[in-house]
Structure formats: C-alpha cells, structure tokens
C-alpha cells in the first residue's frame, strides 16, 4: 500500500540480501584462494621435478610433501565452496517459498473478500427481488391487457368482422369473371409450353425435360372444362413428354 502512495518505490535491502551478499563475497574469496593454492601446487610440482633432476632427493621429497599439504587444503576449500553454494541455493529457494506462500495467502484473502461481498442472504434477497419484479410485471401486463373495457373490446371485434366481410364481398364480386380469364390464360400458356418443352428435349437436360412434362400436366387437366377446339397441340406435347419418359431410363443408364 505504501508503495502505491509514495511515488518513488522504496528500495529496501533486508537481512537476507545482506546474507546473500556476504555469502557471495565469501565464495569469491574462496575461489581466489583456491586459484592461489592451485598455483602453489603447480609450482611445488615443478620444483620437485627440477630437484629430482638435480639429484637432490631430500629436498624434492619436501617439495612434494608441501604439495600434498596444499592439495589437502584445496580439497577443503572445494568443500567450503560447495557449502556456500548450497547455502545460497537454499536461501534462494526459501525466498521463493516465502513469495509463493505470500501469493497464495493473497489469493486466499482476495477470494474471501469477494465471497464476503456477496453473502447468502443477499443472494437470496436478490433472487426474491427478481421474482417479485417478474410477478409485478405480470400483474402489470394483466392490468394493461384488461385496461380495455368489454364494450371497447367488442367494438374492436366487430370492426374485425366488418373488415373480413368486406374482403369476402370483393372476392365474390370478382368470381364470375374468373372462368373466362382462366381459360384465356390457360390456352396461350399451353401453346407457350410446347416450344419450351421441345427446347428442353433438344438440350437433352434430363431434369429440365422432366420439369417441362410436369408443367404440361396442368393445362391437360384443365382441358375438359374448356370447349373441345384445340386438342392437337397438347396431344403433341403429351407425346413428346411420353417420348421423353421412355428415353429417361436410357439416359440414366448412360449416366451411370
């Protein structure tokens, strides 16, 4: 919180940081020492070799003993270094654990706070409120629906009837004209259908030809009501259709 308020974040150095620094410093010093001793070991070795060459065995032995001593120290130093490094690793790990713990704790508190923000009673109340609201709305709608009094409703109904009647009357008036109009329309339609069917047949499109045949059926059905003047064209059309149907299986075979 304090960090949020103060503009400059506080750069705190805690004990753990100092401990890490001390350990790292020690590690560096140990490393330096190790290098120095390693140098000594190499030097003693060289001295021993040259002494042996000169035939000074005693002094060579002494040099080798010193070398052994140094090597022992080297081993100890290595152990120390390992120790320091282990400690550093542990510190880092513990710090991470601490941070993880804090994060988990924070998450937990946040969850609790959020849960507290919506106690059960309030949720219950909320549900009740919304139920109440629904009920209220239903009542309102009912009231509004009934706000038309019976007479007005009846008047509206009467108006509806009147409109329907009017529509029906108009229909009836048009009735007589219907047959002649339809016959006139049917004849040219039949004539027109014929070339269309022929074209379709010539094109050899199976679906199209079949459609043409179907379209021809309608005028044929109406034929009885029309005076028997022109039978020829439909007949031809029918024949064409029949021919078409006869050819149909063939085509299917070819297609297959």
């Amino acid at each position: 919180m304090g960090q949020l308020i103060s503009k400059k974040p506080r750069l705190e150095i805690n004990e753990a940081d100092r401990a890490v620094l001390t350990l790292k410093s020690q590690a560096r010093k140990l490393e330096q020492q190790r290098q120095r001793i390693q140098g000594n070991v190499d030097r003693e070795m060289a001295i021993a070799a040259s002494l042996v060459a000169q035939g000074k065995k005693d002094r060579a032995l002494l040099a080798l003993k010193r070398k052994k001593l140094q090597e022992g120290q080297l081993a100890k130093l290595d152990a120390y270094l390992l120790n320091v490094e282990e400690m550093l690793g542990n510190l880092e790990l513990t710090k991470n654990q601490q941070r993880l713990m804090a994060a988990l704790k924070q998450g937990n508190t946040a969850m609790k706070e959020m849960q507290q923000a919506m106690p059960l009673e309030e949720v219950e109340k909320l549900m009740q409120d919304s139920a109440d609201a629904r009920e209220y709305e239903q009542n309102l709608r009912q009231l509004l629906g009934e706000s038309l009094n019976p007479e007005e409703a009846e008047a509206a109904e009467a108006e509806l009837h009147q409109l329907e009647q009017q529509l029906l009357d108009e229909h009836v008036l048009e009735m007589p004209r219907v047959p002649s109009g339809k016959a006139a329309a049917a004849a040219p339609a039949a004539k027109q259908e014929q070339p269309a069917a022929a074209v379709a047949a010539a094109a050899g499109v199976g679906g199209g030809a079949e459609e043409g045949g179907q379209q021809l059926e309608a005028p044929l059905a109406e034929l009885p009501s029309v005076p028997t003047t022109k039978v020829q064209p439909p007949k031809e059309a029918a024949e064409a259709a029949a021919e078409e149907e006869a050819r149909e299986p063939e085509r299917v075979l070819v297609e297959a």
Binding site: P9, L11, I13, D17, R18, L21, S25
Partner: peptide
C-alpha cells in the same frame, strides 16, 4: 537504475563486496 527504482547498490558487512539488488518494476 536506482533513480528509476529498478535496482539498489549496497554494501554488506565489513570486507564484503559491493552488491546490487534488482527490483521488479512497479
């Protein structure tokens, strides 16, 4: 970096090296 709040230079105990602690940026 210290002025930006990203790191701090500090000294440990006597004889220690200087250290730098890095901070996550706020």
């Amino acid at each position: 970096l210290e002025q930006q709040g990203k790191a701090k230079l500090f000294k440990g105990a006597l004889g220690d090296d200087e250290g730098v602690k890095f901070f996550t940026q706020a």
